Amino acid sequence: MTLPSLPLPLGGLHHVSVLTADAARNHDFYTRVMGLRLVKKTVNQDSPGMYHLFYADGAGTPGTDLTFFDFPRAAREHRGNDSVTRTTYRVTGAAALEFWTDRFDALGVPHGEVYTRDGRAHLDFEDPDGTRLSLFDDGGEGPRGTPHGDLPAGVQLQGLGYSGYHVGDLAPTRAFLETGLGLREVRRYNLDGHPTTVFALGGGGPHAELHVTEAPGLSHSRPGAGSVHHVALRVQDDRELRHWLLHLAATGYGNSGEVDRHWFHSVYIRDPNGLVIELATDGPGFATDEDLSALGERLSLPPFLESRRATIEAHLRPLHLQEGE
Protein backbone atom coordinates (compact mmCIF):
# COMPACT_ATOMS: atom_id res chain seq x y z
CA MET A 1 0.00 0.00 0.00
CA THR A 2 1.29 3.47 -0.86
CA LEU A 3 0.67 5.89 1.98
CA PRO A 4 -0.42 9.47 1.25
CA SER A 5 2.20 12.15 1.68
CA LEU A 6 2.53 13.48 5.21
CA PRO A 7 0.74 16.74 6.05
CA LEU A 8 2.85 19.72 7.00
CA PRO A 9 5.08 18.71 9.94
CA LEU A 10 3.78 19.19 13.47
CA GLY A 11 4.95 22.50 14.88
CA GLY A 12 5.99 21.56 18.39
CA LEU A 13 4.05 21.15 21.62
CA HIS A 14 0.68 22.92 21.83
CA HIS A 15 -0.22 22.22 25.46
CA VAL A 16 0.05 19.61 28.19
CA SER A 17 -2.98 18.63 30.33
CA VAL A 18 -2.58 17.39 33.90
CA LEU A 19 -4.81 16.36 36.84
CA THR A 20 -4.96 18.40 40.05
CA ALA A 21 -6.63 17.62 43.37
CA ASP A 22 -7.01 21.27 44.40
CA ALA A 23 -7.75 23.91 41.76
CA ALA A 24 -7.31 26.93 44.07
CA ARG A 25 -3.92 25.69 45.31
CA ASN A 26 -2.97 24.86 41.73
CA HIS A 27 -3.89 28.36 40.58
CA ASP A 28 -1.81 29.95 43.34
CA PHE A 29 1.24 27.91 42.37
CA TYR A 30 1.14 28.54 38.63
CA THR A 31 0.26 32.24 38.79
CA ARG A 32 2.03 33.42 41.95
CA VAL A 33 5.04 31.09 42.00
CA MET A 34 5.59 30.35 38.30
CA GLY A 35 4.42 33.71 36.92
CA LEU A 36 2.05 32.27 34.32
CA ARG A 37 -1.25 33.85 33.36
CA LEU A 38 -4.63 32.19 33.79
CA VAL A 39 -5.88 32.61 30.23
CA LYS A 40 -9.01 30.46 30.39
CA LYS A 41 -11.22 29.39 33.28
CA THR A 42 -13.61 26.82 31.90
CA VAL A 43 -14.88 23.29 32.50
CA ASN A 44 -14.03 19.85 31.25
CA GLN A 45 -16.19 19.73 28.14
CA ASP A 46 -16.68 15.97 28.52
CA SER A 47 -17.59 16.29 32.22
CA PRO A 48 -18.75 19.87 32.92
CA GLY A 49 -18.93 19.40 36.67
CA MET A 50 -15.17 19.95 36.98
CA TYR A 51 -13.00 22.95 36.23
CA HIS A 52 -10.45 23.07 33.42
CA LEU A 53 -7.83 25.79 33.95
CA PHE A 54 -5.40 26.99 31.28
CA TYR A 55 -2.14 28.79 32.17
CA ALA A 56 0.08 30.35 29.51
CA ASP A 57 2.20 33.37 28.63
CA GLY A 58 0.81 36.89 28.55
CA ALA A 59 -0.91 36.39 25.19
CA GLY A 60 -2.13 32.79 25.60
CA THR A 61 0.20 31.68 22.81
CA PRO A 62 -0.02 28.05 21.63
CA GLY A 63 3.01 26.19 22.88
CA THR A 64 3.09 27.99 26.24
CA ASP A 65 0.06 26.54 28.01
CA LEU A 66 -0.22 23.99 30.76
CA THR A 67 -3.81 22.97 31.57
CA PHE A 68 -5.37 21.26 34.58
CA PHE A 69 -8.49 19.18 35.12
CA ASP A 70 -9.77 19.52 38.67
CA PHE A 71 -10.37 16.22 40.52
CA PRO A 72 -10.95 17.33 44.14
CA ARG A 73 -9.12 15.23 46.75
CA ALA A 74 -7.82 12.76 44.15
CA ALA A 75 -5.06 10.44 45.32
CA ARG A 76 -1.66 10.99 43.75
CA GLU A 77 -0.67 9.07 40.66
CA HIS A 78 1.14 5.77 40.93
CA ARG A 79 4.27 6.46 38.95
CA GLY A 80 5.41 3.99 36.35
CA ASN A 81 5.60 3.05 32.71
CA ASP A 82 3.41 4.10 29.80
CA SER A 83 2.98 7.62 31.11
CA VAL A 84 4.35 11.13 30.74
CA THR A 85 7.06 11.39 33.37
CA ARG A 86 8.49 14.86 32.74
CA THR A 87 6.94 18.14 31.61
CA THR A 88 9.41 20.90 30.85
CA TYR A 89 9.46 24.65 30.38
CA ARG A 90 12.18 26.63 28.67
CA VAL A 91 14.13 29.49 30.24
CA THR A 92 17.20 31.18 28.83
CA GLY A 93 20.61 31.38 30.44
CA ALA A 94 22.34 30.22 33.60
CA ALA A 95 21.17 33.34 35.43
CA ALA A 96 17.54 32.33 34.88
CA LEU A 97 18.12 28.91 36.43
CA GLU A 98 19.92 30.54 39.36
CA PHE A 99 16.95 32.90 39.81
CA TRP A 100 14.49 30.00 39.87
CA THR A 101 16.64 27.98 42.28
CA ASP A 102 16.66 30.90 44.71
CA ARG A 103 12.93 31.50 44.20
CA PHE A 104 12.06 27.86 44.86
CA ASP A 105 14.19 27.93 48.02
CA ALA A 106 12.44 31.08 49.24
CA LEU A 107 8.95 29.73 48.49
CA GLY A 108 9.49 26.17 49.70
CA VAL A 109 9.13 24.45 46.33
CA PRO A 110 10.72 20.96 46.27
CA HIS A 111 13.55 20.89 43.72
CA GLY A 112 16.86 19.30 42.83
CA GLU A 113 20.18 20.86 41.92
CA VAL A 114 20.94 22.29 38.50
CA TYR A 115 22.56 19.54 36.45
CA THR A 116 23.14 18.61 32.82
CA ARG A 117 20.76 16.22 31.05
CA ASP A 118 20.95 15.63 27.31
CA GLY A 119 23.50 18.42 27.00
CA ARG A 120 21.32 21.12 28.60
CA ALA A 121 21.24 22.50 32.15
CA HIS A 122 18.06 21.43 33.97
CA LEU A 123 16.37 22.27 37.25
CA ASP A 124 13.88 19.56 38.29
CA PHE A 125 11.03 20.42 40.67
CA GLU A 126 7.47 19.42 41.59
CA ASP A 127 4.19 21.29 41.94
CA PRO A 128 1.90 20.76 44.99
CA ASP A 129 0.29 17.70 43.34
CA GLY A 130 3.66 16.08 42.66
CA THR A 131 3.66 16.77 38.92
CA ARG A 132 7.23 16.20 37.71
CA LEU A 133 8.50 19.36 36.06
CA SER A 134 11.77 20.82 34.83
CA LEU A 135 13.09 24.17 33.74
CA PHE A 136 15.95 23.97 31.26
CA ASP A 137 18.20 26.43 29.48
CA ASP A 138 17.12 26.53 25.82
CA GLY A 139 20.14 28.64 24.79
CA GLY A 140 17.82 31.19 23.20
CA GLU A 141 16.37 28.66 20.73
CA GLY A 142 12.69 28.27 20.01
CA PRO A 143 9.77 30.72 20.24
CA ARG A 144 9.81 33.47 22.86
CA GLY A 145 6.85 33.81 25.20
CA THR A 146 5.02 37.09 25.75
CA PRO A 147 6.05 38.51 29.16
CA HIS A 148 3.45 38.65 31.91
CA GLY A 149 3.31 39.87 35.49
CA ASP A 150 6.03 41.19 37.76
CA LEU A 151 8.85 38.71 37.28
CA PRO A 152 11.83 40.10 35.33
CA ALA A 153 11.29 39.43 31.62
CA GLY A 154 14.68 37.75 31.27
CA VAL A 155 13.83 34.94 33.68
CA GLN A 156 10.21 34.28 32.70
CA LEU A 157 9.13 30.97 31.19
CA GLN A 158 9.53 31.10 27.40
CA GLY A 159 7.16 28.23 26.64
CA LEU A 160 6.91 24.49 26.84
CA GLY A 161 9.96 22.37 26.16
CA TYR A 162 9.95 18.64 25.50
CA SER A 163 7.69 16.02 27.08
CA GLY A 164 9.35 12.93 28.56
CA TYR A 165 7.70 9.50 28.42
CA HIS A 166 8.54 6.17 30.03
CA VAL A 167 7.45 2.99 28.23
CA GLY A 168 8.10 -0.68 28.80
CA ASP A 169 8.55 -1.40 25.10
CA LEU A 170 9.77 1.31 22.74
CA ALA A 171 8.95 -0.48 19.47
CA PRO A 172 5.18 0.20 19.21
CA THR A 173 5.57 3.82 20.33
CA ARG A 174 8.42 4.32 17.86
CA ALA A 175 6.26 2.95 15.02
CA PHE A 176 3.40 5.26 15.98
CA LEU A 177 5.58 8.37 16.28
CA GLU A 178 7.47 7.73 13.05
CA THR A 179 4.73 6.29 10.81
CA GLY A 180 1.65 7.82 12.38
CA LEU A 181 2.97 11.29 13.23
CA GLY A 182 6.00 11.69 10.98
CA LEU A 183 8.51 12.24 13.78
CA ARG A 184 12.15 11.26 13.39
CA GLU A 185 14.83 10.06 15.78
CA VAL A 186 17.53 12.69 16.22
CA ARG A 187 19.67 11.37 19.10
CA ARG A 188 19.83 9.16 22.17
CA TYR A 189 21.05 9.55 25.74
CA ASN A 190 20.97 7.66 29.03
CA LEU A 191 18.48 8.58 31.77
CA ASP A 192 18.94 6.89 35.15
CA GLY A 193 20.39 3.83 33.48
CA HIS A 194 17.74 3.57 30.78
CA PRO A 195 18.13 4.38 27.06
CA THR A 196 16.19 7.47 25.96
CA THR A 197 15.36 8.23 22.33
CA VAL A 198 14.65 11.80 21.24
CA PHE A 199 12.09 12.25 18.47
CA ALA A 200 11.84 15.61 16.72
CA LEU A 201 8.65 17.27 15.50
CA GLY A 202 9.04 19.22 12.28
CA GLY A 203 12.28 21.17 12.36
CA GLY A 204 12.95 20.07 15.93
CA GLY A 205 14.47 22.25 18.61
CA PRO A 206 13.96 22.45 22.38
CA HIS A 207 10.23 23.20 21.97
CA ALA A 208 9.58 20.40 19.48
CA GLU A 209 10.78 17.08 20.89
CA LEU A 210 9.45 13.99 22.63
CA HIS A 211 11.93 12.08 24.82
CA VAL A 212 10.96 8.41 25.19
CA THR A 213 12.72 6.31 27.83
CA GLU A 214 12.49 2.52 27.61
CA ALA A 215 12.41 0.99 31.11
CA PRO A 216 10.96 -2.54 30.94
CA GLY A 217 11.38 -3.23 34.66
CA LEU A 218 8.97 -0.55 35.91
CA SER A 219 5.40 -1.28 36.93
CA HIS A 220 2.52 0.26 34.99
CA SER A 221 1.43 3.76 36.00
CA ARG A 222 -2.00 4.55 37.46
CA PRO A 223 -3.46 8.05 36.95
CA GLY A 224 -4.08 10.43 39.82
CA ALA A 225 -3.27 13.93 40.98
CA GLY A 226 -0.06 15.09 39.33
CA SER A 227 -0.35 12.76 36.34
CA VAL A 228 -0.41 14.00 32.76
CA HIS A 229 -3.61 13.14 30.92
CA HIS A 230 -2.35 14.00 27.44
CA VAL A 231 0.17 15.96 25.41
CA ALA A 232 -1.07 18.11 22.52
CA LEU A 233 1.00 18.82 19.41
CA ARG A 234 0.61 21.88 17.19
CA VAL A 235 -1.21 21.77 13.85
CA GLN A 236 -1.35 24.91 11.74
CA ASP A 237 -5.08 25.04 10.91
CA ASP A 238 -8.25 23.05 10.18
CA ARG A 239 -7.12 22.11 6.69
CA GLU A 240 -3.97 20.53 8.05
CA LEU A 241 -5.90 18.79 10.82
CA ARG A 242 -8.13 17.11 8.24
CA HIS A 243 -5.08 16.07 6.26
CA TRP A 244 -3.78 14.42 9.44
CA LEU A 245 -7.09 12.58 9.81
CA LEU A 246 -6.67 11.13 6.33
CA HIS A 247 -3.09 10.16 7.11
CA LEU A 248 -4.02 8.47 10.40
CA ALA A 249 -6.76 6.49 8.65
CA ALA A 250 -4.33 5.39 5.93
CA THR A 251 -1.75 4.26 8.48
CA GLY A 252 -4.31 2.39 10.57
CA TYR A 253 -4.26 4.49 13.74
CA GLY A 254 -7.73 4.93 15.24
CA ASN A 255 -8.65 8.34 16.55
CA SER A 256 -11.47 10.48 17.90
CA GLY A 257 -12.21 12.28 14.66
CA GLU A 258 -12.29 16.08 14.70
CA VAL A 259 -13.43 17.58 18.01
CA ASP A 260 -14.37 21.27 18.27
CA ARG A 261 -12.94 22.64 21.53
CA HIS A 262 -14.01 26.18 20.55
CA TRP A 263 -10.57 27.74 21.19
CA PHE A 264 -8.89 25.11 19.01
CA HIS A 265 -9.88 22.01 17.07
CA SER A 266 -8.49 18.62 17.99
CA VAL A 267 -7.95 14.99 17.15
CA TYR A 268 -7.09 12.49 19.90
CA ILE A 269 -5.06 9.34 19.32
CA ARG A 270 -3.98 6.65 21.79
CA ASP A 271 -0.63 5.11 20.94
CA PRO A 272 -0.19 1.31 21.36
CA ASN A 273 1.34 1.80 24.83
CA GLY A 274 -1.71 3.79 25.95
CA LEU A 275 -0.23 7.30 25.75
CA VAL A 276 -2.80 9.88 24.67
CA ILE A 277 -1.67 12.36 22.02
CA GLU A 278 -3.80 15.28 20.84
CA LEU A 279 -3.31 17.19 17.60
CA ALA A 280 -4.57 20.75 18.16
CA THR A 281 -4.87 23.74 15.84
CA ASP A 282 -3.30 27.07 16.72
CA GLY A 283 -6.64 28.89 16.34
CA PRO A 284 -9.17 30.31 16.79
CA GLY A 285 -7.40 31.14 20.08
CA PHE A 286 -8.32 32.10 23.63
CA ALA A 287 -9.37 35.64 22.68
CA THR A 288 -12.17 34.36 20.46
CA ASP A 289 -14.72 34.82 23.28
CA GLU A 290 -12.93 37.17 25.70
CA ASP A 291 -10.96 40.36 25.28
CA LEU A 292 -7.22 39.69 25.42
CA SER A 293 -6.87 42.01 28.40
CA ALA A 294 -9.50 40.06 30.39
CA LEU A 295 -8.59 36.45 29.64
CA GLY A 296 -9.46 34.04 32.45
CA GLU A 297 -11.45 36.51 34.54
CA ARG A 298 -14.83 34.79 34.15
CA LEU A 299 -16.11 31.29 33.57
CA SER A 300 -15.88 30.76 29.82
CA LEU A 301 -18.01 28.07 28.21
CA PRO A 302 -18.03 26.77 24.65
CA PRO A 303 -21.25 27.58 22.76
CA PHE A 304 -22.71 24.09 23.12
CA LEU A 305 -22.60 24.42 26.93
CA GLU A 306 -23.76 28.04 27.18
CA SER A 307 -27.44 27.12 27.55
CA ARG A 308 -26.48 25.08 30.64
CA ARG A 309 -24.47 27.88 32.29
CA ALA A 310 -26.77 28.36 35.30
CA THR A 311 -26.77 24.64 36.11
CA ILE A 312 -23.01 24.29 35.57
CA GLU A 313 -22.19 27.29 37.75
CA ALA A 314 -24.53 26.03 40.49
CA HIS A 315 -22.69 22.70 40.69
CA LEU A 316 -19.13 24.03 40.51
CA ARG A 317 -17.31 24.71 43.76
CA PRO A 318 -16.58 28.44 44.18
CA LEU A 319 -12.99 29.29 43.37
CA HIS A 320 -11.55 32.36 45.03
CA LEU A 321 -8.71 33.02 42.63
CA GLN A 322 -6.31 35.94 42.87
CA GLU A 323 -4.01 36.46 39.90
CA GLY A 324 -0.27 36.84 40.28
CA GLU A 325 1.76 37.83 43.27
Rank of each mutant, 00 (worst) to 15 (best):
H220L: 10
E113D: 15
T20K: 00
L183E: 06
T20V: 14
P62V: 11
R242G: 05
V198F: 03
G149E: 06
L177M: 14
H229M: 08
V39D: 07
L160N: 06
D82G: 04
P72N: 07
T146S: 08
H211E: 09
E297G: 12
V276P: 04
R32M: 05
G324S: 15
F68G: 08
F71S: 11
Y30W: 15
V228R: 06
H15F: 06
A280H: 01
L160C: 06
L305E: 01
A75K: 12
P48D: 04
Q322E: 09
M1I: 12
D22I: 04
T88N: 02
F29N: 02
G168K: 10
G49S: 02
D289A: 11
L3F: 06
S47Y: 07
L6R: 15
H229T: 09
V198K: 01
R25A: 15
T251A: 01
L295Y: 06
R117P: 00
R90L: 10
A21I: 08
P223H: 12
A287L: 09
G49R: 08
A94N: 04
A294F: 08
P172W: 11
Y30K: 13
R144V: 12
L301Q: 04
E98C: 12
I312A: 00
A24H: 05
A208Y: 02
R242F: 11
T173K: 10
R234G: 06
A200Y: 04
L10V: 14
R37L: 11
H52T: 04
P48K: 13
L123A: 12
E214Y: 08
A106Q: 15
R317V: 15
L305C: 01
A106P: 12
H220Q: 13
Q45T: 13
I312K: 03
R239C: 01
E297L: 13
V235M: 06
L316I: 14
S17A: 14
R132T: 06
E77F: 09
L299I: 11
S227E: 04
A171D: 10
D57E: 05
D22E: 05
N273I: 10
F68D: 01
R222I: 11
L53S: 13
G257H: 09
H229I: 03
A208E: 07
F136E: 02
G283C: 07
Y55D: 09
H52V: 14
T87M: 10
M1N: 10
D22K: 11
G49N: 10
A153L: 03
D260S: 11
G161H: 09
T2W: 06
A215I: 05
A153Q: 11
N44K: 08
